[in-house]
Design a protein around this nucleic acid. Sequence first.
DNA 1: CTTGACACAGAACAAGCGTTCGAGTATTAT
DNA 2: ATAATACTCGAACGCTTGTTCTGTGTCAAG
Lengths: 224, 224
Amino acid sequence: MMMVRKSKGLGERHQKILDFIASYQRERKHPPSIREIGEFCDISSTSVVNYYLDQLEKSGNIERDRKISRGVRLTNSTPLGDIFRVPLYGVIQAGEPIPIPSSDFNSFTAEDSVDVAMSLMPTKEKGKDLFALKVQGESMIDAMVNDGDIIILKPIQEARNGEMVAVWLSDRNETTLKFFFKEKERYRLQPANPTMKPIYINKNETLEIKGKVVMVIRKVERQI
Amino acid sequence: MMMVRKSKGLGERHQKILDFIASYQRERKHPPSIREIGEFCDISSTSVVNYYLDQLEKSGNIERDRKISRGVRLTNSTPLGDIFRVPLYGVIQAGEPIPIPSSDFNSFTAEDSVDVAMSLMPTKEKGKDLFALKVQGESMIDAMVNDGDIIILKPIQEARNGEMVAVWLSDRNETTLKFFFKEKERYRLQPANPTMKPIYINKNETLEIKGKVVMVIRKVERQI
DNA sequence: CTTGACACAGAACAAGCGTTCGAGTATTAT
DNA sequence: ATAATACTCGAACGCTTGTTCTGTGTCAAG
């Protein structure tokens, strides 16, 4: 029998256990027992599961209520309950490019992520490829997005008319949020604020759509 | 020994059990055992706890994984995990008064409530008296709040300078969101949008503050 | 008063479950 | 090759926990 041993960090056995605990908790609303973990991960002995659980506890991935049935819980990452954790890729700011979403699936901690309750998510956008950006500066104010707001975007390359998108205007060297409209010979980027005029982009010019805004969250601590 | 028997619905024993399960789950991240429930609710016999649990299951308040340790979970209401459930009292609209928060603590279902992840809540406002309103109409656009947005408010009577408040202007017969400033002889209600002019209210006029906005949530399905 | 539904206690049982120990095998280091 | 380390198994022990059964006191209807 082959054994896979990753020298440092979590082996695939550890990862599988963590994933199982997360999915089990999400579905059954309570943690799994040691034997259930073992069954799912093809571990025939409870002591082996215990062995891995000890390691996961030492490495800080789980917490255990010893002596208590099903007293396992994930610590960081994977939030409990009906929560969507969206990675926060950075700051969007006029004049700066949006940091590229690194395509590796490394887990992100609570520091650089945003939790959104399931029930708040727009129905269609429950895919896992969403990402969040923090808005810096008042330049988006015409899109009713304020400094400090958090926007949640769905990565897209082509927008449909009427969608609010984050675009990179290379000739203006500027990132901005606008409503997108495709017209005959050009693109129209329409601010939400009627007092502002739209931006027109010819179709031969570069227009790089980064993502489509699906949600805006504003924490109002104390403004102005 | 006196026994409290409510003819219909949940007795206070039932309610206490439900509350305990909710708080236990929230703190320990796993459901309580029958004996733990009994200890907390001053029930000396596990059979009595089981007796109540059966009733709560029949009435649809909980679900049970029989034979499985700590296989109790709340069904409706009380969301799992680090979620704040805020009651949605109705719609805020210029020209209409804000519906009064009924002060009884009856539970609210998911239909008329908004879930917010703990991690998103402004640190100070984790009290349980928050409420949510859905914004109708474009009249709040100068406060960067759009039609369809959900605002979460903390009920207050007196605002401090710079806070965004929902106020009822009885002489204008209008509800609106503005930034609040107390000046020498008057109140200044400052829109967030610099192109809009502030509203001045003399101190002898009626100015009814309904609540202070602590969060704005916008689901962007398809705008314009 | 009797009856029966209801609320409760206590004990005992069986299964669930975490823990521990002894032993064996594979991998890596020396 | 040898030792140390990492990993796995199986079984047994004992506490935890859900279940069930018998019995008691209360209260309202017949």
